[in-house]
Design a protein around this nucleic acid. Structure first.
Lengths: 339, 339
DNA sequence: ATGAAAGCGCTAACAT
DNA sequence: ATGTTAGCGCTTTCAT
């Protein structure tokens, strides 16, 4: 596969066997504790393996057993605080169960994602985790299934019903937050939501509307807009809002990153948070408590989503084709100074 | 290797060959564009591969060619903003060069790190990246070498001279910052440094001392302390300082996370930053610009460290045994409101 | 308790 | 241009 530097050959089972004048098979059994090998042989094998610094070749093992004990993890951007936590949960759970993870970034690029999956499939991963995948449509699921490898969606769910996923309750989370905002005095809540690329936006909007409805407030589409989840876009959206003539009481942001931009824009105008405008967001990323104004937000169980998703996948790898499981974890309201 | 669910067999070269009544070898050549195969055959092979959804088995390829096109990445905690950026740089560079990465976390636990490396070696990674490794002593390097796999240190360098690494200039960065603090009016600079677990602390201390010296200020050990790089520890260290009778003009923190805790402690007392106390730190993590007080800090080129380290490793994998390279990247002073 | 044979899927080397 | 042989390192199966 292109290894240009021929390295010193690593000892194999055969080497140990030859050294001891026994068969490779006996060594294999001894080293794997399968039994069927005498106590004395076992002892000698172990000693020799140690002495030669024998390292079992997992590649050969994988080929033989068609299982690599490796999970593919495809994520949009592992360097974002949010996903970094999810990945940590995945890695920890995988490792605890004897699996390694191969990490790939897609940068929200569908063809990059397909390419990554291709590579992973070629490397014969035992299962695949898709965190905030772009392949959520029904036809994408057919594509994913074509590889015959179990997979689980995280954060974003697939449109196809029969697919496993672990997400947080976006409707519930948004609803709780808006309900809190309204209940604590802001009858008028602007919503700077995530943009079209991010499917969760729909559920968060539903939650927003649900909360309004429950509070007998009519939904006003003009209060809602959507932007990319960046500080800059949050900032400029808020600037626009501030430049308009509409009164602004409270702003609910589709994610914390947008919230940061929004707060900056407000503070730049010399307005106060929360006295003049209240700000709330979604995710509870690291440092949300230490921002310009500590941010009220909906905490997604990021690490737990990674853990649960991995457990689910490993179960699928081991047991195989049961029906699809859907885990919807409950987020938690975190009230800080910004409201 | 324990795959319990027998999956449908995936087509192999032989299947394609049988389908076309030719040899597996011909198919291999055709699919790999090695030439030595007729135009018509080539066409038919490609069609059939497509039709059968053939996925080359990289495991078999790896066994045959003893190269996995996979790099092991061992990092203390990939979920920390800082390391997440480094890992992104690694992943991006690796992927661009046709490598995948297996990611392992060590949580600063030496035995966990050794275990991770063991697994990676068994999986026959082509090279190893150690980001903030615990295995920096000379005897550790012997251990690492015993596997016969090229490796590169990132962030932290090894004590052994003949080992490749990519770091930032901790001495220079700290020196610049302290020089700036002194030059802009704070003759007395407290230093809340990183604790013993983190070797970079030494260089940052050297930089601190160097700057003082250059400014004709005598080094006062009582102004220096060290804490774990957490918000809590930064906070309590600062509380102690504030409770003391010593005058405090400026605090230089060993990293941004400590800086966050320090700022919290100062603000809790009703003191102002920077009017009453100036705060500076090291790293420039995400959101450092959006904290309670935008943080003046030394920007480490995190992403670039990942990229350069990976390029270096890949070069070693390809070319092999040249002499060790040491890359010391220049950090950048980022002046914000906290000073 | 131990071993021999076979084969996982692939390709380098050597025929034809 | 194409095919044959052999083997990467391992384990399952079936002998002994």
């Amino acid at each position: 596969m292109g290894g240009e530097k021929p390295r010193l050959r690593t000892p194999t089972l055969k080497d140990i066997a030859r050294e001891l004048g026994i068969s490779a098979m006996a060594v294999s059994k001894a080293l794997n504790g399968k039994g069927g090998v005498g106590a004395e042989t076992l002892q000698r094998v172990k000693e020799t393996a140690e002495r030669l610094n024998y390292q079992p070749n997992a590649v050969a093992k994988s080929l033989r057993l068609s299982s690599t004990k490796t999970i593919g993890v495809v994520v949009s951007d592992s360097s974002l605080s949010f996903f970094a936590k999810v990945v940590k949960g995945i890695e920890e759970t995988a490792s605890r169960n004897g699996y390694s993870i191969i990490l790939c970034n897609t940068d929200q690029d569908c063809s990059k994602e397909k390419l990554a999956i291709q590579v992973l499939v070629n490397k014969r991963i035992d299962g695949l985790i898709l965190a905030a995948s772009m392949l959520t449509r029904k036809e994408d699921v057919a594509y994913l299934r074509s590889f015959g490898i179990p997979f689980v969606f995280l954060i974003r769910r697939s449109e196809a019903e029969e697919v496993d996923y672990v997400i947080n309750d976006n409707i519930g989370g948004a609803c709780q937050m808006v309900d809190y905002l309204v209940g604590s005095g802001s009858r008028k809540v602007h919503f700077i939501n995530l943009n079209e690329e991010i499917p969760s936006r729909k559920d968060r909007l539903s939650g927003y509307r649900k909360a309004l409805e429950e509070n007998g407030i009519s939904y006003e589409p003009s209060l809602v807009r959507s932007v990319k989840p960046t500080i800059e876009d949050g900032h400029s959206a808020m600037v626009e809002l501030l430049d308009g003539k509409e009164e602004i009481q409270a702003v609910f942001c589709g994610c914390d990153v947008i919230g940061i931009g929004v707060m900056e824009a407000i503070l730049e105008r010399g307005l106060r948070i929360p006295q003049d405008i209240r700000v709330a967001a979604y995710d509870d990323i690291d440092f949300a408590a230490y921002l310009r104004v500590p941010l009220t937000t909906v905490r997604q169980p990021k690490f737990t989503i990674g853990c649960k998703g991995t457990e689910l996948l490993i179960e699928k790898i081991r047991v195989g084709g049961q029906e699809a499981k859907h885990l919807v974890l409950q987020p938690e309201l975190v009230i800080r100074m910004s409201t």
